[in-house]
């Protein structure tokens, strides 16, 4: 039996075009959807554009939305992922070199520098992945989805998705080998 959509309570309001229902939906999922854009595109501003497109798309679809097939969040994850893949296809990788501020007062300057260096390396490794592999890492690792859910979002079989994920991890390990080895030692 299909699991009930936890967002079903908002559907009547969304169908009626109540902005308060949309505001509640954003309180629940805006961060999750923006994160897909961020890990896929590597840019906070573009990630917000993806989130805006996704929520407005649902807002348009809401009057016709039929609960039961996919949950609302799964649908939005699919829309956001496809939007990111489209943007990557059109413009190529757009990871910026800017390192986000992650200041922690307990760290020394050297530790912070090392940490930023590592973060930057991981961001570059992610940007070096083929688009589909990056999507698989985003969904499975950063969104904590099962392989079945990730496969459904990318429109692939579970077996193909597993293979995609395995190649992505292999590529990331290769790109981050100095850091992986340093942690092992």
């Amino acid at each position: 039996m299909a699991k009930a959509d936890p967002d079903n309570d908002l559907l009547p309001g969304l169908r009626e075009g109540e902005e308060s229902a949309l505001a509640h939906l954003m309180d629940r999922h805006l961060k999750t959807i923006t994160a897909i854009g961020y890990y896929m595109l590597g840019d906070a501003s573009l990630a917000e554009d993806v989130a805006q497109t996704t929520f407005l798309k649902f807002w348009q679809q809401a009057p016709k939305w039929e609960p039961g097939q996919a949950t609302l969040l799964t649908w939005m994850r699919r829309v956001a992922t496809n939007d990111c893949l489209d943007r990557l296809r059109k413009k190529g990788p757009i990871y910026s070199d800017r390192v986000p501020d992650q200041a922690d007062e307990t760290e020394t300057a050297l530790e912070e520098l090392e940490k930023n260096d590592t973060v930057d390396a991981v961001r570059r490794a992610l940007s070096g992945l083929p688009d589909a592999q990056r999507a698989a890492i985003t969904l499975s690792y950063y969104q904590h989805l099962s392989q079945k859910e990730g496969a459904a979002i990318l429109g692939q079989s579970v077996k193909a998705y597993e293979s995609l994920l395995s190649r992505a991890r292999k590529n990331l390990k290769a790109a981050l080998s100095p850091w992986v080895e340093r942690e092992t030692v």
């Binding site: 505001a23 989130a51 590592t118 991981v122």
Partner: peptide, 22 residues
């Protein structure tokens, strides 16, 4: 180790203006 490394990249919080914009 790879998971530890991936953990270091955190998605920033959406800006306060995003919700109002949408």
């Amino acid at each position: 180790n790879l998971n530890n490394l991936l953990d270091q990249v955190k998605s920033p919080e959406p800006s306060d203006l995003l919700k109002a914009r949408i």
